[in-house]
Design a protein around this nucleic acid. Structure first.
Lengths: 107, 107
DNA sequence: CCAAGTACATAACAACACAAAGTACTTTAT
DNA sequence: ATAAAGTACTTTGTGTTGTTATGTACTTGG
């Protein structure tokens, strides 16, 4: 898969998933990798950025089947960011569609 | 606009437009900027990369209304690359759609 | 004890959009 | 003439961010 395509989209995907239910990193990797190739080195730095931006919060939960899990939940600001990004995403793919099958005007 | 979204997509857009008819850089900028914000610093290096990859060829045409224009045409290899990228693009936006309104399975 | 699975973190790297600045030609206004 | 604006291409530096690789640490099974 073209790795460049993921840029700017992964953040939106993570926000969407976390807004549905609190998740920990490893869980997100498994969930997202069902649809696109992804690794730890992509998700963990992204989660860190999102937390620094104030889009998500985190809390630790001990686990009986391995090391403790760091759960992430969406903040109000994250919810707003998510909405903006979903909107931008729609506009963007519409623009690309227009270019692919039109030229510049319409078809 | 989220500039990261363009990554990996612009190349496809340029290939699509050039495959319809030979274009020069300045023309491409005007055409693409109808749908998404874009500047010279984005297109010219991209055209250079595409030529180095063998996806497009170029030839100079003198102009009466300014400096000579460097026209680009798609190669057979560029045509194949275009097809692959269009396919990948479709699969990618389908994957994102699935994440946005499903979770991982379906809805 | 060691491998494998779970879980997180970080450092080095590479790709690429973008801003900015430069070159160079033509036309129009001063 | 010359200054400004539009056309057209090029290059350099920077910032963002996905990827690879590595390290830490816990638990379970052989």
């Amino acid at each position: 898969m073209n790795s460049q395509l993921k840029r700017g989209t992964l953040e939106m995907c993570v926000l969407v998933i976390v807004s549905r239910k609190d998740c920990y990193g490893y869980e997100l990797i498994n969930q997202i990798s069902a649809c696109m190739q992804i690794t730890e080195g992509t998700i963990y730095p992204l989660l860190k950025r999102l937390k620094e931006q104030g889009s998500i919060d985190s809390y630790i939960v001990e686990s009986q089947e391995g090391p403790p899990r760091k759960y992430y939940s969406i903040t109000e600001e994250g919810e707003r960011t998510k909405q903006v990004q979903l909107q931008e995403w729609q506009e963007f793919i519409n623009g690309v569609k227009k270019i692919i099958n039109g030229g510049g005007s319409d078809e």
